[in-house]
Structure formats: C-alpha cells, structure tokens
Design a protein around this nucleic acid. Structure first.
Length: 474
RNA sequence: GGACCAUUGGUGUAGCGGCCUAACAUGUCUCCCUGUCACGGAGAAGAUCACGAGUUCGAAUCUCGUAUGGUCCGCCA
C-alpha cells in the first residue's frame, strides 16, 4: 500500500509536501462545512483537515483509511501533540476497511477496566500507551544484548522440556508421548543448565529466559515470566553487582533519560527488614520502624510476654483524624502477617492517649515520647512478636499503606538499591531444627559465616542479593 | 488450601427494602455548526440489575447456593 510517511513523525519541516498516509480513525470532529480526523498509526496521531467540497465516504471511529494530502502549518497549534504544529489537508480519502463500534474508548485515557481490556486485547494494543510499553520492553531486550555481548557474555538457549527438579516452586508438567506415564517439567529457571555451562568452560553466559512456575497469582506475579539470566565464572559478589548496576544504568538512561548514580546504595537484609519492614523496601519516604523493645517489654501488657521483638512506627498528623474504623482495618492488615494485633497510641497536647496507656507508667510514657521524638498529633502504631519477620513485615505493610494514603511517593521518581547479605536459612516455624532456604538454595554461605553452619544456621548469611526498584524486587 | 470483596445499558460508576417505570458520565445513532483538537448545541435509542432458590405485602437492595472476576495469606529455588 502506498505510504510516504508515518503519521506521528510529521513536523513543520514537512510543510508543503504531498503525503500518502494510512491508519486508524481515532476521532472525527465535524464542524459543518469543514471537519477534522485524528489519524493514528504506530508512531502516533496526526490531524487531517477536510475542507468543503472534498468527497468523504462514511468514516467512523476505528475505520482504517488511506489519504492523500498536503502537509500544512496549523493556524492554531496544539502543543499537546508532537505533530501539533501541522495538519494534513486532505485531497482524497479512501476507506480500506470498516469497523464495528469498539467496546471501549481507544485512547490513553480509556475508561475500561483491565478485565475488559484483556478481553479485547487486540483493541487495547492499539492504544499508544500499550504500544509504548511493548517498545520499552523490546528496548530493554535490545540493550541487554548490547551490554552483555560487550562484556564478553555468550547467549545460550537452554532446553524448555526438562526433567523435574524437586526444589522450589511447583513445576508445570508436559506428558511424554514416547515414555508413557512420564512427564517433562518446564523450567522454573535455567539454573542447572547454566551451572553446567560454567563447568563446560563457557565462563560467561546469559539468556533472556522464559520461566514457568505453577504457583498462585498475585497482582505483580505471573506463572509465566521472562528473566534476564546470567551466570559467570571467576567473579565475586562485587563484580556481579557492578555488572548489573551498569546494565540498569543503561536502561534508565536510554529509556527514560534518567541518570542513575553508581554505585547503588547497598543495605543489609536485616537493616532493610528492621528499618523499612520489607526485604524490598521503597526508600523514597521515611516512616521507618523504631525499636521500642526496651520500653515496651517493661509494661504490664500481657500480650508482650512472649515477644522478642517490639517495634513502632510513627505516623505524623494522624492522631486526631484516624478513626476507629481505620484502626480496625490496620488490625486486619497486621494479622495477615502473623501478628496478633497492632496497638496504638496518640500524642496530643504533650501527652499520650489511648487505651494502651493503662499498661504504661509515667516514666515509660516519657521514655517513649523521647525515644520516638514525638510531635503534636503523631499516631504511634506498634506490635510485638516472638518472630522478627512477623513484626517487620506486619509494620512494613502499614508503612506502605500510609505512604500511599499520604501521597509520600512522588510520581516519576526512582529508587534503586541493593539488598545484600540475605540469611542462608530460615527456621521453619514450630520445628526445633528444620530449616528452609531463605532466599534460594543456589547460593553460597559467606566465608566468614561458615563456622556457624553446624551450630547456629540462622546466623549464616549468604552471597545473595536483590535489586529493588521503587519497592519491587526486580 | 484459606479469608475477604465485587458482578447494574457498549464502557465506567451511583442507587443498598417501597420515592426505581433504575440515575449520572462517557460511548453510539440522527440533525445543526468554517478552526476543532476532552469541540460545541439539540434530540433519540440502549438494562428481564450475573444465575438459581429463599425471606417479605413488596427485592437491584436482605439470606443461602452457584458461576465468573479480583485482592490478600499460604505458596512464590
């Protein structure tokens, strides 16, 4: 089909040229004798201008049309569009294909729910925002190839149909036709293959690898996903962190023109947990957890008898406005993480209030006010548990909740950091001496922790680390 | 495996025992409009309120069940 230009790329420098364009009708605005059509293709939108006398067939939204016309400077430019300085004066307009009315508005500001959009995925993909996302993804893949190739990595495809490995998540399985009653497993990651590649002397391997894990979904988790998979020989932890940082820096520069400063901040797993209540913290805002064990353990509150960890979080300007209903919701939220509940105190007029004050003598109250540096109208939430992770995750969930509600996260800002020194093991609750891998079992204990392996496994930290971007484990 | 929430014109929501012959926005259709770009103006069509049973004089609204979707916990090397 004849096409001289792409709609979203026309500029003032094209004025005077005759062009042939194709695309989808985004909107049509009729003003009596003249009319306008926004014509969309995969580069964007350009305005067509149709003067009186030009023959226009029946054209409705999402019809595919082809036009011939002349690029012209607009009398009134539209600064919101990249093509806003020009328009195309139509000489001839043909309908290539008709369309039914779409079930939702095909524009960045669509009013449809995700479910509806997924039902009509092929229409949703017409939206510029969706096309942009696919482009970003493709760009990441392209940059990854460039970056890792330059760093002497060899791309290797590993098999999809495998033997099942007993570790980790549930496998997706595929029945074997030839070996009746046997099954293949789809890879949860290319872990074993890449280790074989290292034994095979490849030294540096990478793959943009499809992975499959048959586990239940979450909002940010899918059973089938892609990971940039890397393995190298003769590298230490710092070498890997530096390599990955450099790659992320490239992504951010090339895609959103944001300069990531290296080296990235690195924080210990337990610092992240105890300070932010998460092993993948968003550190763009404070609302940090504070250790109040020494003060609260002394109170007469029976609920803290078996507590080994008691922490608090201070929410500014929320003492007065936080209702009973909201506090009850916080209870529900905290209980999801194994906490029996979350207590609260309010600080107003230089004194603490709330039913918990009856467990605290005057000295304890004073100590708490000083330790937390309480200010007028502060709301104090605190919880205790025998389990460190329960306290941390429970309060961490409340931290995230209030940050969203209070609008503490500025849109368009980025927070990248490493969480390092993950524990090697986590004791299985309710057992004496059974442990599970905290992060994953394909890591090595730190050299300095080897001595605890037999005596105190929980103390052993690993050469294991996560990159966190805006509170997500990337 | 468990808990909770939702389901109302094409789309997104409101209504939460009688004012419902179901409202609003948007979309759609018809007509008008020579500078719109979230165009504007006038009018019209469009919904057995997911399904099944029950409570009630009366159910979109309350109860139970079913289905579908979602969120979270478990799970996620």
């Amino acid at each position: 089909m004849e096409r001289t230009d792409y709609n979203g790329e026309l500029r003032l420098s094209d004025v005077g040229r005759e062009v042939k364009l194709v695309g989808w009708v985004s909107t049509r605005r009729r003003l009596g004798a003249i009319e306008f059509i926004d014509l969309r293709d995969n580069t964007g939108i350009v305005q067509l201008m149709i003067k009186e006398g030009v023959e226009v067939p029946d054209v409705r939204n999402e019809y595919v049309i082809s036009v011939t016309g002349t690029v012209s400077k607009k009398e009134v430019p539209n600064p919101k569009l990249p093509t806003g300085d020009i328009e195309v004066i139509v000489k001839e307009l043909k309908v290539v294909n008709k369309a039914e009315n779409p079930p939702f508005i095909i524009a960045d500001k669509t009013d449809a729910l995700e479910e509806t959009r997924l039902q009509y995925r092929y229409l949703d993909l017409r939206r510029p925002e969706m096309q942009r996302r696919l482009r970003v993804r493709a760009k990441i893949v392209q940059l990854t190839h460039e970056y890792l190739d330059k760093n002497r990595f060899l791309e290797v495809e590993t098999p999809i149909l495998n033997l099942a490995t007993p570790e980790g998540a549930r496998d997706y399985i595929v029945p074997s036709r030839l070996h009746h009653g046997s099954f293949y497993a789809l890879p949860q990651s290319p872990q074993l293959f890449k280790q074989l590649l290292m034994i095979g002397g490849i030294e540096r391997y990478y793959q943009i690898a499809k992975c499959f894990r048959d586990e239940d979904l979450r909002a940010d988790r899918q059973p089938e996903f892609t990971q940039i998979d890397v393995e190298c020989s003769f590298m230490e932890q710092d070498d890997i962190l530096t390599l990955c940082e450099g790659m992320l820096q490239r992504y951010f520069k090339e895609i959103v023109n944001y300069d990531v400063k290296l080296p990235l901040r690195r924080i210990d797993y337990w610092d992240a947990m105890d300070t932010y209540g998460s092993d993948k913290p968003d550190t763009r805002y404070e609302l940090t957890l504070k250790d109040v064990y020494a003060i609260m353990k002394k109170t007469s509150f029976a609920g803290f008898e078996d507590a080994k960890y008691i922490r608090a979080i201070v929410i500014p300007n929320h003492a007065t406005e936080t209702s009973r209903k909201v506090l009850d919701e916080l209870q529900v939220e905290a209980r999801k993480f194994g906490l029996k509940g979350v207590m609260f105190l309010k600080y107003n007029g230089g004194a603490l209030s709330g039913s918990f004050t009856k467990f605290m003598d005057e000295a304890a109250q004073k100590e708490l006010i000083e330790t937390l540096s309480l200010k007028e109208d502060d709301l104090v939430l605190f919880a205790g548990s025998p389990y460190r992770r329960d306290v941390d995750f429970g309060l961490g969930a409340l931290r995230t909740r209030f940050a969203k509600e209070m609008g503490l996260i500025k849109p368009g800002t980025y927070d990248l950091l490493w969480v390092i020194n993950f524990p090697m093991f986590d004791k299985i609750e309710g057992t004496e001496d059974q442990y599970t891998a905290e992060h994953h079992p394909f890591t090595r204990p730190r050299d300095e922790d080897l001595k605890y392996l037999d005596t105190d496994p929980e103390k052993v930290l690993a050469y294991a680390y996560d990159i966190c971007i805006n509170g997500y484990e990337a």
